[in-house]
Design a binder for these strands. Structure first.
Lengths: 344, 344
DNA sequence: CTGAAAGCGCTAACAC
DNA sequence: GTGTTAGCGCTTTCAG
């Protein structure tokens, strides 16, 4: 069944040695024009394709890069993956995508799996659960090519691509303040993640700037990033049943943001009349929501591209890359009805 | 940098031959208990991982399966991929995902790429553009393991996993009819795709059953499945500027459905007052739309699982599988406000 | 200009 | 029970 042609087959058919064929195929200058043409034409005719597995074994590299994200069914990550693929493909790399579903154990397993597949490098956005980063530290110390994006590891001076989370959250919070909301809650993913904390800091800074006190009861964490049933619902329930409930919510994670709306509605709140809403999300359909949703968008596609370019640079650099490269891009605040002043 | 242990390393360290180590590692019964224990312990200690590339070369299989879909940033496919991964993973297979972006050329390139990577099998949902299926026919004739899902190839008796498109469209159309709408348009992807035509047939059958005439001007195709800018907008524009415009639209593809809403709104139509809407989509947030969207949902996750199980069966079967396996599941109609009778 | 041979990591006949 | 060897497909010294 379906046996691809090998160099040996060509060699035999043409009465040459495998090395000659190999060299001809690779355009070595030390092969006669005649022979070269002969080989090339025959290879073309039989639709010869080099066996990448054999190549990998030989070259000790796989021309593939591993991607570790929480989920592909997530607007941000599916868009980022598009960016990753676009660059990887045109540079001749394969992309192997793995999902952690926010579990640290799956993350560790995925990394092992990818390493055992001899990927040439890793593109990683940490899972919500991850606290032990020693494996990454180890790989980093060995000079293994890795680029972190969006959810980066702390305490390691690695290559990374991030957005200005602080500014994104700051602007969004300030927009709510300018719209007249002063009681603003923060619905967040796990504080494990640096980006959660940075977004929180942006929120805090905006309130501070407007001389609004930060109330701890206005800050709710969903430690599984909204992946666990009821997590978001509980958080919202607690928030809205406070003696002095918030008038607005800023949600700082994709899944949380899109998850909020049906729950708030089910609880009987109108947006923004009863509670305004702004959130980090890359949903393509935020505009179609009821009401149209104010969002902080990340340039996911571009970030995927940048991270991949960075990684391929590191992989292909002749010498170990010691200084960590780091790129930060801006978020985009798109103001829609959900964070507008409530019409009275 | 980061040199994994090999069998040779172990053999040298322990003063054994590589074959002994290999056998011990694979639990061969002809190895002394002592030696076996020694090897296993040492392997454990140095965290030995067999090199899958060498294995692939040896066994002429890669323990990986290739996936060809139009996009991961698509609700249906990202969910299906979750299903695919869940099964593949637990069966020890890798998943390599490639995207066609609805281009036949990219599809062909992806298939070649995956074949050249020696994937053990292929999971395919055709691109919208695909009309030439000769390559698939060829692979099929060679007995190469393939399973098609959702968007299947015709004229080839292959393994496949589909939904009952006819019934899904029929039920949705009938619900619109029961809600009092009689002028119902069909917004569809390319008729290249069998599922587009099946869904169209379901729509037709429902109208027929209710003695409603099928108007050709009520049927609009987006030949790139909504991937090309302005495609959906044009279709809707044409539809709504008919002398006798439709009162309802059934959209038969994920991207089209979610794409419709902002466009209709921008054109100044209220849903469902001016035009009702129902559509095939697996969006998780259809409920949050304005208005909440009536959807025909496909069990994407399950379909991904089923297709993968089927594929792995074929791959691992001792003898070529000649009779084509075929599974069909039901869609689920979730009725929400967008297809309700318009309140007058 | 071309061929022979070694080697990437692993397994499996085939010795002994 | 364990070692030797060949071979998976390819590249690359080293010879000639």
């Amino acid at each position: 069944m379906f046996k691809p042609y090998t160099i040996k087959d060509i060699a035999k058919a043409l009465g040459l040695s495998t090395s000659t064929v190999s060299r001809a195929l690779n355009g070595s200058y030390e092969i006669g024009t005649e022979t070269k043409k002969l080989v090339l034409e025959y290879a073309e005719k039989v639709n010869y394709r080099p066996n990448p597995i054999a190549l990998s074994l030989k070259e000790q590299r796989s021309r593939s890069i591993g991607v570790v994200v929480c989920e592909v069914a997530n607007n941000y990550f599916s868009q980022a993956i598009n960016g990753i693929e676009s660059i990887a493909y045109s540079s001749g790399y394969h992309v192997i995508i793995t999902q952690t579903h926010e579990s640290a154990a799956r993350e560790a397993a995925n990394v092992q799996h990818l390493l055992s597949r001899h990927v040439d490098g890793l593109l990683i956005a940490l899972s919500a659960e991850t606290t032990d980063t020693s494996e990454f530290k180890f790989l980093h110390s060995k000079g293994f090519p890795m680029v972190f994006f969006d959810r980066i590891v702390e305490n390691i001076d690695t290559h990374k691509v991030t957005v200005d989370n602080f500014k994104g959250a700051f602007e969004a919070t300030e927009q709510l303040l300018n719209a007249g909301y002063t009681k603003i809650a923060n619905l967040a993913s796990t504080p494990n993640l640096l980006n959660t904390r940075e977004r929180f800091d942006g929120y805090k800074a905006a309130l501070l700037k407007h001389n609004i006190q930060i109330l701890p009861e206005y800050v709710k964490y969903c430690h599984h990033g909204g992946m666990v049933a009821g997590e978001v619902e509980n958080a919202l329930q607690e928030l809205m049943s406070l003696p002095d409930p918030p008038q607005a919510i800023i949600s700082t994670n994709d899944r949380l943001t899109t998850g909020c709306i049906p729950i708030l509605k089910k609880m009987g709140y109108r947006i923004p009349e009863d509670v305004a809403l702004t959130g980090f999300t890359n949903s393509e359909v935020a505009e179609s929501f009821a009401p149209p949703l104010t969002v902080i968008r990340q340039p996911a596609f571009t970030m995927g591209q940048m991270a991949t370019e960075m990684l391929i640079n590191v992989i292909e650099s002749k010498y170990p890359v010691y200084e960590a490269m780091s790129t930060q891009v801006d978020t985009e605040l798109i103001v829609r009805q959900s964070s507008m002043p409530a019409k009275i």
